[in-house]
């Protein structure tokens, strides 16, 4: 297994995530796309961590970053869901196309 194959998987994952963020109408789906992008980045960190450094003494920084990002993603999901909930309560919808209050 080479690093390229892992990076390819991560790239595909990132593209799917981006596509999801740009095209989904539902805010929760957008949030799920963001999760995909974060995990693509995570995959990259872990891959580079595994393939650099020597056997038995891998480069740890990448894994630390990965753990960090998972924690951050959890926190982000919590805050984002809370915001979405608040929006739903106020607007009665979570369709991002309808949330254009900042326009003019």
């Amino acid at each position: 297994m080479t690093v390229q194959s892992v990076l390819s998987v991560a790239a595909i994952l990132f593209s799917l995530g981006l596509y999801c963020v740009l095209t989904r109408k539902n805010a929760v789906s957008v949030l799920m796309g963001v999760e995909l992008i974060l995990n693509a980045a995570n995959l990259n960190f872990v891959a580079f961590s595994s393939f650099t450094g020597t056997i038995g003494a891998p480069e740890v920084a990448g894994r630390v970053f990965a753990v960090m990002i998972i924690v951050l993603a959890a926190a982000e999901a919590a805050v984002a869901l809370a915001i979405i909930l608040a929006i739903f309560r106020r607007m009665g919808t979570v369709e991002v196309d309808n949330l254009n209050e900042l326009r003019e």
Binding site: L18, V21, L22, T23, V30, V96, D97, L99, N100, E101, L102, R103, E104
Partner: peptide, 17 residues
């Protein structure tokens, strides 16, 4: 120029990407 500001989240994301 204000017409650029659509208020739609995904338009901004497109521009950003």
């Amino acid at each position: 120029l204000k017409k650029i500001q659509t208020g739609r989240l995904q338009d901004y994301l497109y521009v950003m990407v």
